[in-house]
Design a protein around this nucleic acid. Sequence first.
RNA 1: GUGGGUAUAGUGCAGUUGGUUAACGCGCCAGGUUGUGGCCCUGGAGAACGUCGGUUCAAGUCCGACUACUCACCCCA
Length: 454
Amino acid sequence: MALITKAPRGTADALPGDSCRLAEIEKVASETASTYGFGEIRTPVFEHTELFDRGVGGTTDVVQKEMYTFDDNSGRSLSLRPEGTAGAARAFIEHGLFNEPAPQKFRYGISCFRYEKPQSGRLREFHQFGVESFGSAHFTAETEVIELASRIIGWFGIEAVLRINSIGCRECRGEYRAALKEYFAAHTDSLCDTCKGRLETNPLRILDCKNPECHELAAGAPVILDYLCDDCRAHFEGVKSMLDGLGIKYEVDPMIVRGLDYYTRTVFEFVSPVLGAQGTVCGGGRYDGLVEELGGPPTPACGFGMGLERMLLAAERSGYEFSRPEAPDVFVGYDPSDPAAMTAAARLVSELRDSFFYADFDVCSRSVKAQMKYAGKKGARFTAVIGGRELESGEVSVKNMRTGEQTPVRLDEFCERIFGLISDDLVSSELSDEVAGELAERGIDIRPDGDGKE
RNA sequence: GUGGGUAUAGUGCAGUUGGUUAACGCGCCAGGUUGUGGCCCUGGAGAACGUCGGUUCAAGUCCGACUACUCACCCCA
């Protein structure tokens, strides 16, 4: 296929039908986060390359070989964001939000870009929902964020294991690092080549290595949790007991070492077994050093990033029922040989749309039969056909496409009548709560006792 | 970046040991007496068989390279 008719590698179109599922995930995540007080923040798609270099970490894979970096016309080096935290932190500093009441809590749904080899659940442009909470050093800040993630994941019925760890603060990690280095240095021969390099640059990463020999070696390595300073230890205990108190199950996994440099103390990830190798559906943690590293005042913070495509995959595989794509409430057909009928249909549809109905008519001017066929394919709830006869009598027959039942309706009271017809049909078709919810959003409550979802 | 698998209409696929006009389901369009969907019937459009090169009288079928997709590694969401 020609290049110009193919989306670039690692990118994907979301066609109507799919896009509404992604949108549903983002909507649920976003609305849930807003009940926690996370306000939406929008930051640029690209930032100065240096922001990611300093923020995410110059030795990380993400920055070293996965960024989309380019010079603009005035020679500035810019990069498409590979994640969302750095940009949010930059905005936090730039606008002096450290002067505002703490915590400052943000949520966002964004595209991120990483030049990686695409595979299932990993694209080069991917979508992430994330939250950041700036200004609290207390463990309740991260448990709040974890609870939020857990709630969102749970909403979609996704089975996911929460794994947590503490990687300590600058002080205790330094000690641990030295101990780790000492341990692995004694076994250099058994390490894979990349890990030999990591020994100097970032020995923590060796713990993450999937190479069998490294893995085996790592199993016997010193554990970070034994090196935590008193403060970090107490903090981690606080996190765990709060999670217990909230009834959130977790596994402590001392092998979790996040690949982004800014993390301190608590790190966590939600891993779903239904996804295979790319099972991390959400990852995050505390990053107390980031704001200061970027030139702001010392500011404790934490947050998470959630992969929307992975959430979608996991939700589908977990049997979550997404809202059905919108189908027309009313489809108005017309006699294509009668210009007056066509105009009348167009005006009727326009009037229905005034009242926020999904109303449609044929813009191909096809035969009545073809129009009805189209309406049927679109899943229209009701149809009506306008021709000379209807214009003359002022009355049109409205057909329920599900039952085939026809109801005569006066053209001049079409809108009001259709209102009732739709309500009746919704009730009699044992509609799902979701459809009812949709109607409720338009201020139409068709259920006897109108309580919320669930 | 490393390794495995795959590559035929919009989509899902068939194409026997290389041999004429590349088959079928779904989808799309149009009809089935002139103003009504779904089911059924009929007809139609739509494929330089991923790309380039090679072997051969002959290649969708064999070989090579490239590209894309996919799975795993690495890393991450």
